[in-house]
Design a protein around this nucleic acid. Structure first.
Lengths: 140, 140
DNA sequence: GAGTTATTCCGAACAGCTTTCAGTTATTAC
DNA sequence: GTAATAACTGAAAGCTGTTCGGAATAACTC
């Protein structure tokens, strides 16, 4: 998985630095979409001197290459998630703890209806997010 | 419309200040969900001394009272929209110019499927956004 | 293994938003 | 009306997530 991603980077003519490898590793391991800060923390547990803007720049690079998706939930920070081919999905997000779960499917019907309704709009992307309280945070 | 909203504020025990009335007016006039900065600019054209934090505070108050919806598109700032009863809707947003259009419907099916899939998650809200290029920005 | 050039690190800047606090004002009680 | 008071406002400072500029470093090319 990591090896795959790295060879993909190499193909794309991007330098493979230890920092980038580590960011990739963290993204692949992370089960939740992560904020830059979370990623930084994890990367620093191995490479303590990595600066936060290396993280931001790396994520920007990966995003441009399509290796990573950038997500915006209802808080102020961006989250990043590895983009695995054929794994298009949406999220259910806990307002309390910020954790996210994959939704079982995608509102395709709605997307098609919108397409018919606004035929001249050139659709590029879409997002569906459900907000609420996860089982753990419900009681607390 | 404005009078309605104001009487609703009064019912809720919130003070009716000129600043708040003006924010309401701007929101009711605005056809697009607006950023705090846009709202501030418009409010200042009548009340030049209004501070930005009054805008933020007012919007937070209105949101708490359910008078206003907060939206998150793919950029980093929040947008606000007047919440008219019975007018639940989602948005189609132009990546270029930032304008937004109301979608004809809501991905209810998808929401229900998610509900069945994660029965212990307490759903509070949801958002569906379509991104792309509007007819005007397509060519440019 | 030397050169080149992208990438990294660091400090500081920036944008959007929030807090604090002193002063003002819309509302309530008289 | 008038006074009391709790809610509100404006100004400035502060916070958080993100980006920039430039010198130093190190990955890739030959």
């Amino acid at each position: 998985m990591l090896a795959q991603a790295i060879s993909r980077l190499r193909q794309l003519g991007v330098r493979i630095t230890p920092q980038r490898q580590e960011v990739l590793r963290v993204l692949l391991e992370g089960k939740q979409p992560s904020t830059a800060e979370e990623i930084l923390k994890k990367v620093r547990s191995r490479y303590p001197r990595v600066s936060q803007d290396t993280i931001y720049r790396t994520l920007a690079t990966f995003k441009k290459l399509g290796l990573v998706n950038e997500l915006h939930f209802s808080d102020r920070c961006r989250r990043f998630e590895i983009n695995i081919r054929g794994d298009h999905h949406h999220h259910m997000v806990c307002i309390q703890c910020g954790n996210a779960w994959k939704l079982p499917d995608c509102p395709l019907e709605c997307l098609m209806r919108a397409k018919n309704y606004y035929p001249d709009f050139q659709i590029e992307d879409h997002s569906f997010v459900i907000y609420g309280y996860c089982p753990k945070c419900r009681g607390a």
